[in-house]
Amino acid sequence: MNKPFKLKIPSLIENVRIAESFIDQARDEFNFNDDIYGNIMIAVTESVNNAIIHGNRNDKEKNVHLELDVTEKEISFTIEDEGKGFDFDALPDPTAPENIDKPGGRGIFLMKHLADEVEFSKEGRAITLTFYI
């Protein structure tokens, strides 16, 4: 594949379905198996959700940028918002006893378990989720 696929989504929570269609198109195009598909669908939609809600603060004037890059060995999705970013090294552990009952804080934990690599950049405004194929 020569160039990555790119998509720009306005920050409306219902637009997560656009990201789901993007992932379905990628599966059709690159033929990845069902196990990896499930992990990608959950991790990427969770990340898009976070970008809309936490990154762009549900501001429909701001966009979420989704990029797909595929090599022979891996599929990478980069999700970037237009917010202020955050300190991704200071995230509380959602499995710690004091955080078990909190409603939020599990998304990134989940992404780290579903993707083979998770890398933050741009002061936390961008995340790259890599899946080995």
Rank of each mutant, 00 (worst) to 15 (best):
D116H: 10
V44I: 07
T45S: 10
V118E: 02
D101E: 14
D59Y: 00
E20N: 08
S121W: 01
S76V: 09
H54S: 12
S121A: 14
P10S: 10
T130P: 14
D87I: 05
A51P: 02
E29A: 13
F88Q: 12
D101R: 12
E123L: 08
E82T: 08
N99H: 12
T45Q: 10
F109P: 04
D59K: 05
E67N: 05
S76R: 12
A19K: 00
I40A: 11
K112S: 15
R57N: 13
E61S: 12
V44W: 03
V44N: 01
L66Y: 04
N39L: 08
I133C: 01
N58R: 14
E98R: 09
D35R: 09
K8E: 08
D101A: 14
P103D: 12
I53A: 11
T78M: 10
I79K: 10
T45C: 10
T45D: 06
F77R: 06
A96E: 12
A26T: 05
E123W: 11
E72P: 08
A96K: 06
I42W: 02
P97S: 13
N39W: 07
N49R: 09
D93S: 06
E67R: 07
E29H: 09
E98A: 13
V48I: 10
I75P: 05
Y132L: 14
R27P: 00
P4L: 03
A26K: 06
H113P: 02
M1W: 03
A115P: 03
K6G: 03
I75N: 02
T130Q: 04
K112H: 01
N39S: 13
M111A: 15
I13F: 13
F86R: 01
F86T: 04
P94I: 02
S76T: 15
D89Y: 09
S21C: 05
K60W: 06
K122A: 15
F88S: 13
G55Y: 02
N50M: 10
G38H: 13
E80M: 15
L68D: 09
R57Y: 10
E98Y: 04
E72Y: 08
P103M: 12
M1Q: 04
F22G: 11
I52N: 08
F32E: 04
V70T: 11
G38V: 11
E80T: 15
G85Q: 08
A43T: 01
N31D: 09
R125T: 15
Y132R: 03
A19V: 01
D24C: 05
S121T: 02
N49F: 12
T45A: 03
N15L: 01
P103V: 12
N2V: 08
K3C: 02
A126H: 04
N50P: 11
